[in-house]
Structures are given as structure tokens and as C-alpha cells.
Design a protein around this nucleic acid. Structure first.
Length: 775
DNA sequence: GCTTTGTTCCTTTTT
DNA sequence: GGAACAAAGC
């Protein structure tokens, strides 16, 4: 047992061993918070606590994944028996068991933000409400806010204060929309993210026997990032721990960055009121960062009025001053960062994984990516545009969702005509209206279409098509009973004709979509394999997969162990650490964001976010800002961020003019490549014919054109990407050898148009990463 | 009914 | 730079 504590210092040891009764740990950045939590759990188990009796809640999958991994290293396979996961994941699991009590069935769908917004849009349309007044995003935010504060539609509409606010804002019908949305979700047997928390509260409030069951089940409750809990999370946790009172929360008010989604930092302050016998521990020593970084972080946060006084200090060396880089444009900024990393790598002999580039908004990643490709530095983007937001993935998931949960109207409408089955908008609309008027679900109507079609006034052709569709889904349902997740998924994709639709399409995009669908299938395969190893007795179902995947924001990147620079938003960086950190886009209105400067507390949250970003670094922080930046295709000039002046001047290596880099030459638009550039290629639709058609290399055949949205989106061809130029011979794992005709696209996935003689049929737009250069 | 073409309006951060 | 919508064309 001794060996466990050996890895910890004295303060940490004390915390780990204090296992009985409520404990609050105020842990500054770099104080070994995750370590303490992990070892505390390990300690419990080593002392005979059953892992099934421990619940450990985190905010992100990343955090829980990391903790699980560390725990497995310390205590072995028992780690997987702990109820460890995100709030949403764990509560989703419980709700699946208890769904019937709340009028759901256990295969409920989890709606993501896009699903929610599209339902709100439909509601607005059906009630002919102006979507300018009732902006769907805003409506959703309002509903979400109500739910995280545990205000039901009924309570919302009966609360004169809320009604007054809405009335004042000239949006008196918000409550009505909330109610309609609420009912729509219930009818579809679906919960959105906030419902997972809300319904968990309902369960605990209205079913004392259920509450007791889980209170008895969990002897130990641990919560990470406690400052980010919202009211509904806080109430659940409080109730769960009420009986055994072995609750341990870890938090840092200075790192609270989620007030926008309902987090209440007060929860930290109130903890001792709820549990008067609480023992409070403070971990203030920072083992991560240099003196300079710690001082800078402290000097930033001291600008905030509201904070619990806590001094972070460190024994570490002073370290380098914080370098500030001034740039003329976003493109130049990206190149400066890439170059700086390049030089640091050479001088300090470190790896790509030692670097992180942070930014305020995801949109900023684009320029960085371009620069990194130019400089040949491998990178990984964490949490960018989600894999699961792609059209083809959403389509495929809709098939799965519908098969598992027939009530899911969103899903049915999405795929009833994908691939085209001759079931058009008019028919679909008619069914929706009919269903809602008769209090039926969409599925109710089409599954017994023979009895309904007269009132619907459908043609016999439409009737047949709808019936065919319903029969197909019914067949999937039957087959689902006997097949495990991967097999049924594959079967659905084939039999629905979706895969074939992609296969026969000659759009370049389709082969890319195909790859994504295959990637999803691989994901299911991994899921079933892992589940079978974990518990060979139980067959992993499609429903299990859906639950897991709905709460995932990104497909688990396979490149996790590769040596790459990490790029992510400051929010995503929470909980991580890197030797070298670059914080980019330090411009007023960008960081701090202009959207977050309406009130003082919003500005203070931005400051805390900057604090989080700074304290990710171990050895060196580099800040950069640009004097101009592209916004909506237009160049706008920027002012340096106030944060730059809020840091103690002595800690800064002040801005200097950017020297001209040793390659390329400067233009008003940033840098221009030294490589030869070609005339703009026009794309097919909406544009005049390609002026100078691109001809395939000798021995290669070209069929089809690039398809894009409109002439405004014609793309530049770039040649200087990772040593590949048109003409380069490449090899694809599946299609064999080919020749690059064109490099295309910007953003996360640079694409190459490649001719594959073996494949013959068409040119392919492929994910760049999948190509190997031959010779 | 389905596909192509043209326009508008966005943009914070995440489960 | 792009998603979502609307309109026109097939």
C-alpha cells in the first residue's frame, strides 16, 4: 500500500487518505489535481472499496478517458468497473435503465445541438413565427438555460418574472415554444443534452425508491472541475451523496469558464453550506510551470474582482520571459508560430508533441493548418468540426437511430428519401401534419399506411413507396434482435441502398463520404470488439453504440500516439499540459471575444479562460496577435488584446517587428508561396465551363469534374503541400497507385484529386492523409 | 420530384 | 468560406 503514496508529496498524500466524509479540494493549475483524484480512487480500491460503488464524474470524455487510463496503470482491469465518465454519459446510462418511469423507453435518442435547433426551426415554421425575432440559436439557448436551472415549461410559463423578461425582449412566445419543443422531444422518445440532466433530477425527485437505490449504490462520489457544474448537475450530485456523504469535489474558481452554459461558480462557495462537516484542502503549489508563467497567470487573474483569494506559487526556475509576436495578418501569425516551433524544435531538441497552439475560436485553426503544412510540421486538431456533424454520418446515424427508436421523427424525415425513393417533400409534410393532428408519430402513420392513406389522400404510387420503406425498417428491427452492432449496421447500410448510392455517384465528394462511412463502421467494429472483451456475456447492441457515440464530440483520433503538434481552443485545453504553448489571436474582440463583453462577469470569464490557457505551459509561453484578420472573406484591422497590457510588463519579451522570414516574400496579403501557382480553377456548378480544362496525365483517364457549390467558391489550386505536387505518384491503401492531378480544398482536410488507372471509373477526392508518396 | 444554380446570413466557447 | 435556403431547370 505504501507504494501508492510514494508518488505523491505530503499535501497530496493527506488529501488522498482523507476518504471519509465530504472533502473539497481547491486545486490551482498544475497542482496535481488529476493525480490526486486518480490516486484517491486507487487508494479507495486498494483499501477494499468495491469499484462498482465509486462514481467519478468529469466534464469531458477526454478527462475521464485519461483518468481511466491512468487508473488502469495503477490498479489494473478493475478500473473499468468504476462508474466513471462524463455527467451526461453516466446519467444517460442510468436513465436508460430507468427510462420507463419517466415515460420514455430505454432506446431513447440523444439529440445534439443541431437536432435541437432543427426541431425549433420546424416549430417556428409550423406556427408561422418569425425566425428573426425567435432566432433558433437564441431560443435554444433560452430553453437550455431554463433546463439547466431546472425550470420546466410549466414553471417557465407560470413564472411572472420570466414572462416579464420575455415580454420586455418582445419575445412573449418563448415559453410556448419551449413547451412545444418539450412535447416534441417526448413524442420522439428523445432527450437533448440538458434533458439528460433534467430528467435525472426528475427521477430523483419523483421516485424516492430510485433515488435510494442509487444513493445506496454509490458509497463514494467524486466530481472533477466542480466550478463548472450547473444547478441541475449540482443537485443530482448533492442528492446522490446525501446518504453516505463521502463526496469529494475538486475545483478551482479561477478556472471556471463555462458560465455561458449555466455553470455556477457559487457551487464551490456553497459546498460547505450543504455539507457543514466538509474538510477543505488547498493545493496551491504549482509543479508544472516556470516562475514567469505562474506570475503572469497571477497578474492576469488579479484583474478580476470576484475571486476566492488563492495564491499559486512555484519552486520552479524563473524560465524564459513570455514572448509576444506581432504580425501583420492572420496568415503571417500562423507562419510565425510554425516557424517558431520549427526553430525551438531544433534548438531544444524536443518533439512535436511538446507543443500546443491555442486559440479562442475554432475558425482560427484554418490559417494555422495552412502554415503547418507549408512548414511540414505534423499537427493534430483536437475537437474541431465534428466527424459526427458530417452529412453522410448524420444520415447513417439516422438510419441507426430510427431502427433503434421508431419514434424518432427527426431521423425518419432525414432518411426517408436518402437515397431517393420518390418520397418527396409534399408527401412528407402531409404525413407530418396528419400525424400531429391525430397525435400519432410519423412511424405510426407509415407503419400502418394502408389504414391511413385515404385520409392522407395519397396516390397509390406514394402509398407503395411508403409501405416499402416501412417494411424495410421493420425487417431491420427483426434482424437487430439477433445481430450485434457491427453486423446490423453493415446490413442496414447495404440494404437501405445508402452505400450503393454513394458508390454509384460520380460526384467527387462521394468517395470521400464513402471513406467516412467506412470509418464510422470501423468505429462500430472497435466498439463491439472492446465491449466483447470487457463483457463477453453481453452482446453489444446498436443502441449501446448510439448512446456512447451521441455524447462523443469527435471520433477517437487514431493518431493519438503520433508525434504531432496539438491545436485546439483554449476551452479544450483545460486539463492538459504542454512544455511549449502558443496562444494566438490575442486581439481585442477576438480574445476576449466581443460576444463576451456585455457584462463585467463575462469579461472576467474571458480572463479566466486566458488564465487557463497560460497555465497549460510548462516551459514557455508565446503570445501572438495580428494587426489584421480575415472575417467573412474581408480583411479587418485588429487592436492588440487588453490582456497583453494586463500582464506584468517585466514578464514580457515585448513585441517587435516581424522580421522577414527566410523563405517566401511578404505581400499585403501575408505571404505568397515561392512555388508556381496556377490560374484559378473554376468548378462545375454555377460557373462557366472550366476555362482551361485540367487534363489527366498520360495514361490516366479523367471522368467527371469537381463539384462544388457555386462559382463564388471556386478554389485555388495549391502545389506546396507536404511535398506533393500535381504529377506526384501516390499510393492509396485501397485504390492502389495513382497520380496527383490537383491539390484542393482548405481547412481540416486538404484533398487531392488523384487518377487511379486501376480504379478506372472516376477521379477521386481523397483525404490527403490517406495518400502515400511513391518513390 | 429531383438536381442544379444562386443568395443570404452567419460566427464563441461544449456536453 | 460555407451551410442553409430559395428558385429555377430538367
Amino acid at each position: 500500500m505504501k507504494h501508492l503514496l510514494q508518488d505523491l508529496n505530503e499535501a497530496q498524500q493527506l488529501v488522498v487518505q482523507e476518504t471519509n466524509g465530504p472533502v473539497m479540494i481547491l486545486a490551482g493549475p498544475g497542482s496535481g489535481k488529476t493525480r490526486v483524484l486518480t490516486y484517491r480512487i486507487a487508494w479507495l480500491i486498494e483499501n477494499g472499496v468495491d469499484p462498482f460503488r465509486i462514481m467519478a464524474l468529469t466534464f469531458t470524455n477526454k478527462a475521464s478517458g485519461e483518468m481511466k487510463e491512468r487508473l488502469t496503470k495503477i490498479i489494473g482491469n478493475e478500473a473499468r468497473n468504476i462508474w466513471m465518465g462524463t455527467f451526461h454519459g453516466i446519467f444517460g446510462r442510468i436513465l436508460r435503465i430507468e427510462a420507463h418511469r419517466l415515460g420514455y423507453n430505454s432506446n431513447f435518442t440523444i439529440y445534439d445541438t443541431d437536432d435541437s435547433k432543427s426541431i425549433i426551426k420546424q416549430i417556428l415554421k409550423e406556427n408561422s413565427l418569425d425566425d428573426k425575432v425567435y432566432n433558433p440559436g437564441l431560443v435554444f439557448h433560452r430553453i437550455s438555460g431554463a433546463k439547466t436551472s431546472l425550470v420546466s415549461p410549466a414553471a417557465y410559463n407560470n413564472n411572472t418574472e420570466i414572462q416579464g423578461e420575455d415580454y420586455k425582449a418582445q419575445k412573449p412566445l418563448l415559453g410556448k415554444i419551449y413547451e412545444l419543443y418539450w412535447n416534441r422531444c417526448r413524442r420522439s422518445n428523445a432527450m437533448d443534452f440538458d434533458d439528460l440532466l433534467f430528467n435525472m433530477n426528475l427521477l430523483m425527485r419523483d421516485f424516492p425508491e430510485v433515488m435510494e437505490k442509487y444513493q445506496n449504490m454509490f458509497h463514494y462520489v467524486l466530481v472533477d472541475e466542480y466550478q463548472d457544474t450547473c444547478l441541475s448537475q449540482y443537485k443530482i450530485v448533492k442528492k446522490l451523496a446525501e446518504k453516505h456523504r463521502n463526496i469529494c469535489v475538486v475545483g478551482d474558481d479561477a478556472q471556471g469558464i463555462y458560465a455561458f452554459r449555466g455553470a455556477r461558480i457559487e457551487n464551490i462557495l456553497n459546498f460547505s453550506k450543504d455539507f457543514p462537516e466538509t474538510k477543505v484542502f488547498k493545493l496551491e503549489q504549482n509543479y508544472r510551470s516556470t516562475q514567469v508563467i505562474v506570475d503572469a497567470a497571477n497578474s492576469i487573474i488579479s484583474n478580476n474582482e470576484s475571486q476566492i483569494t488563492k495564491t499559486i506559487w512555484t519552486d520552479n526556475d524563473a524560465g524564459d520571459k513570455i514572448k509576444v509576436i506581432r504580425n501583420s495578418s492572420d496568415a503571417e501569425e500562423a507562419l510565425s508560430v510554425a516557424q517558431d516551433i520549427f526553430h525551438t524544435k531544433v534548438n531544444q531538441r524536443c518533439l512535436n508533441v511538446d507543443f500546443a497552439v491555442l486559440y479562442r475560436t475554432n475558425a482560427q485553426s484554418r490559417a494555422l493548418e495552412e502554415a503547418f503544412r507549408k512548414m511540414n510540421i505534423p499537427y493534430r486538431i483536437i475537437g474541431s468540426v465534428s466527424f459526427y456533424k458530417r452529412k453522410e454520418i448524420k444520415d447513417v446515424m439516422a438510419y441507426f437511430r430510427l431502427t433503434v427508436n421508431l419514434s424518432d421523427e427527426e431521423a425518419i424525415v432525414r432518411i426517408i428519401n436518402a437515397p431517393a425513393r420518390g418520397i418527396g417533400k409534399t408527401t412528407v409534410d402531409r404525413i407530418i401534419v396528419y400525424a400531429h393532428e391525430n397525435d400519432l408519430t410519423f412511424w405510426d402513420v407509415i407503419s400502418s399506411i394502408e389504414t391511413n392513406h385515404k385520409e392522407l389522400g395519397l396516390s397509390s404510387g406514394a402509398l407503395k413507396k411508403l409501405d416499402d420503406f416501412a417494411v424495410m425498417i421493420k425487417r431491420f428491427r427483426i434482424q437487430m434482435e439477433t445481430l450485434h452492432a457491427y453486423d446490423i449496421a453493415e446490413l442496414i447500410l447495404k440494404d437501405s441502398g445508402y452505400l450503393n448510392m454513394l458508390k454509384v455517384s460520380d460526384e467527387l465528394e462521394s468517395s470521400l463520404r464513402m471513406e467516412n462511412v467506412e470509418e464510422l463502421l470501423n468505429g462500430i467494429k472497435n466498439f463491439t470488439d472492446a465491449a466483447e472483451i470487457e463483457n463477453p456475456e453481453v452482446v453489444p447492441t446498436l443502441g449501446d453504440f448510439l448512446l456512447e457515440v451521441s455524447l462523443l464530440t469527435d471520433l477517437d483520433d487514431d493518431g493519438v500516439n503520433e508525434d504531432r503538434v496539438s491545436m485546439m481552443t483554449a476551452h479544450s485545453a483545460k486539463g492538459l499540459e504542454f512544455p511549449y504553448v502558443y496562444i494566438t489571436g490575442l486581439e481585442e474582440n477576438l480574445f476576449p471575444s466581443i460576444m463576451s463583453m456585455n457584462t463585467k462577469s463575462e469579461l472576467e470569464e474571458e480572463r479566466r479562460l486566458f488564465y487557463v490557457a497560460l497555465t497549460r505551459a510548462m516551459i514557455r509561453v508565446t503570445l501572438s496577435y495580428a494587426e489584421s484578420r480575415f472575417k467573412w472573406g474581408k480583411r479587418e484591422s485588429c487592436e492588440p488584446s487588453r490582456f497583453l497590457t494586463e500582464i506584468d510588463e517585466k514578464l514580457l519579451d515585448m513585441p517587435r517587428k516581424k522580421e522577414i522570414p527566410d523563405w517566401g516574400h511578404q505581400t499585403s496579403q501575408g505571404f505568397e508561396s515561392d512555388f508556381e501557382s496556377t490560374p484559378k480553377l473554376r468548378v462545375k456548378s454555377g460557373a462557366p465551363a472550366i476555362k482551361k480544362p485540367v487534363e489527366p496525365p498520360v495514361g490516366f483517364k479523367k471522368i467527371g469534374n469537381i463539384s462544388a457549390q457555386s462559382q463564388n467558391q471556386s478554389q485555388n489550386v495549391e502545389f506546396d503541400i507536404q511535398n506533393v505536387i500535381p504529377g506526384t505518384e501516390v499510393e492509396h491503401e485501397k485504390f492502389g497507385k495513382g497520380k496527383v492531378l490537383q491539390i484542393d480544398g482548405s481547412g481540416a482536410e486538404k484533398k487531392a484529386v488523384v487518377f487511379f488507372p486501376a480504379f478506372g471509373k472516376k477521379n477521386l477526392l481523397l483525404k490527403f492523409a490517406k495518400l502515400k508518396i511513391v518513390g
